[in-house]
Every structure is written in C-alpha cells, then in structure tokens.
Amino acid sequence: MSERRRIIMYVQGKCYKCGGFLAVDETQDASVCPFCGKAFIVEKAIRSFNDNAANDIDMTKAPYTYDSDFVVERSVLVRYNGYTKKEVRIPDGISVIGEAAFQGMNNIETVFIPKGVEVISGGAFSGCKNLHTIHISEGVETIDIDAFNGCISLKDIKFPDSILNMEASAFTGCTSLESVNIPKNIELLPWRIFEGCTSLKFISIPKKVKTIEDFAFAECTSLESVNFECMHSDGDTATGIKRIGMNAFKNCTALSGINLPDTLEYIGNQAFRGCSKMKKISIPQSVKAIYPFAFADCSSLEQVTFAGDTELYKGSNPYKYGKNPATFFNCPKLLNVSYSKIQKHYWAFPAYCKSQEPINMENGRCRYCGGEFKGIIEKVCSVCKAHKDY
C-alpha cells in the first residue's frame, strides 16, 4: 500500500528555470531538474505547469481518452491495470509515463507511445519480460533510469530525435535487443545503459556524444562493430567523444577492432578488458591518458600503435590492481608495439618486453625495459632502476 501511495503522488510540473516538463512528487519540498541539473521548489514547479496549461488552448482541449485500466492524475499515467492485455496504446493527453507504471507486467507484448508524451519515468517498463515491440513517437525527451531494464524480449527500438536524456541502466539486460539507434542530440551514454545486451551487434555513436560512461556496453558479447560518427574534431568542441569510461566495453568478446576518433582524451580502467577478438588498436594522438588494465585479457591482440605521447597509469590501489597493473596484461600475442615512451612504461607491455629480453641483453641494455645502465660496480638501469643481473 505504501509503495502504491508513493507512486500516485507523481504529478505534472514544469521547471521554472529551464522550461523542462517534469514528473514531480508533490509530497516533496524540492527536487533536482534532470534537464538543467538545478534544484527547484516542487510547489512552484507544479504552479508553473498549471499556469502554462491555463494559457495553452491546445492543452486545455486535449481529451483524456483512457479506459478504466489507466490510472491517470493530471496527465501523468501513474499505473496501468490491464493485466491480461497484450497490446497497450497509451491514451492521448498523457505527458508523463509514471515511475513503475507497467513494471513487471509480463502480459504486455506491444506498446504504442503517442505524441504528447515527454517523459518515460524510472522503471516504467522494467521487467516486462514479453515486451518485444515498442513504438515511441516524436516528442519524448527523457527516458529515465531503469525504464526498460530486464525487458528480455525487446528486439528493436527506433528512438525519435526529440530524446535529449537517457539515464542509467535504461536498457540493461535486454538480452534480445539486436538493433538500436542512439538519438542524435544525446551528449552522454550513461552508466550501464546497454550492459548485458548480449544480442546487440552494431552501435553507432552520434557526433554530440562526449562521454561513454562506466559499463555502458559491458558484456555485450555479440557486439561486432562500433562506429563513431565524428572521427575528427575539425576545431568543433561541441562534437566528438572525449572519454570512454571504466569497463565501458568490457568482455565484448565479438569486437574484433575499433577505430578510435582523434577527439578522444581518456580511456578508463578496464575499458576494453576481455575483448578477446581484438587484433590491433591505434591510439590517437589526442589521448592524454589510459588507465589500468584498459586492454587486459585481449588475448588476440597483436599490434598496438600510439600516435602521441599518451601517459599510462598503474593505479594507486595495490589491492585492486595487484602487483602488475599492466595496461596490456595477459595479451600474449602483443609483440608489435610502436610507442615513443615504451621504456618509461615498460611494465604496461609484459609480452612485448619479455620478447625483447634477448635483444636487450645482447646489446648490454636492461633486460626488462631496454634502458642504459649507470654505475661501474653496481650497474642500475637509468629507466626502471633494476640492477643488472646477467
């Protein structure tokens, strides 16, 4: 009963700072706008919406053509009670599909979302295990956290360009999802958004996306191709990916290669770990830093080329990263490395450095990193500080 009461408190509001339409909990004093990120007073946001509606002729005339299965309050669909129906058509006049409105309804197979809907709230369709088709009309702006999480039968989604925000875990565990377009105005692919979508084979990253957050495509084991629509910055700071987060593509075991754009600056911890089909990778000059284990367990990787002086980091937590936080840990075939700072970062390339030991020893250099020795009696490598032991 308490959960139901909490859900039906969501009503329509409007952010008086940016103009975005919101689903707000009228029992709360304040909240944060998902569009502009600024705090607002709930009562004032509701009043702002009502004042706007009073002056909007089209809105006042829009009828609520819903039946008894739809529980609606002030244009917010707070719950659906059609427990036997396979096809659902959201009625006209709805602007917000409320939190958990259809959660766990396994009877639903097809959903039609009409024009006028602006927000699909958190968990709205989560756990709808038989939902295989959803039609989203132009006008939807926000898909909130966990909105379609666990919809294991969902195969294809076509997003309208009106979508501006997609929140964390929105499609996590949609294991049948084969095809999806990312809206062109999205700037952030959030945490775990497509994690575990094991049937997804191709993804195209729009020009405006600047960040792929942690675990965004982790465990997408069928993902074969990633296309970045913006490969070159051309001086436009508003376009091009800047950061690939921690574990973003971890265990994408079908990914045989990826062309990284020259707008990229940071590659996070374990970002491509376990991409066991990847054979070669080129790191653009724009990349400033790569963090621990970024390409660890890429067991087929044979060649890596650095276009610039990218810094590689070991990580500061020995318990988390162990004694050998190599960027290319367990890449046994990686024997071809082109990198201007390879001596300084010798630890990052275990297989390559091991293969160079005989050559280094023959030339009187450090067997580990190839650096020159200093000292007469006790010779010490000028690069890695290792003592000469041969």
Rank of each mutant, 00 (worst) to 15 (best):
G257F: 02
C298N: 05
S286K: 12
A307C: 13
N251P: 09
L301E: 04
I281D: 05
S222Q: 15
H232R: 07
K208H: 13
G274E: 05
Y321C: 03
S276W: 03
I205R: 01
A216E: 09
A271P: 14
G196P: 15
R243W: 06
A254T: 13
S282R: 05
M231C: 11
G315F: 07
M278P: 13
Y291H: 06
F295P: 01
E213M: 14
T239E: 14
Y313E: 12
L312V: 13
N251A: 08
S300R: 07
E302A: 08
F215N: 09
I267R: 08
E302L: 03
G240H: 01
L255H: 06
Q303L: 10
S256N: 09
K280F: 12
L200V: 13
N324K: 14
G315K: 08
V304D: 00
M246D: 15
I258R: 03
A248V: 13
K242M: 10
K201N: 02
D234E: 13
G245N: 09
E224N: 08
S204I: 00
R273A: 11
P318N: 05
L264Y: 05
A218N: 15
I203L: 01
G268N: 03
L260I: 07
E311D: 15
T263D: 03
K210T: 00
L260H: 02
G274Q: 03
S276L: 01
L312E: 04
S222H: 14
N247A: 11
K210C: 00
R243N: 09
E229G: 02
T310I: 02
T221I: 07
C252V: 11
T253W: 07
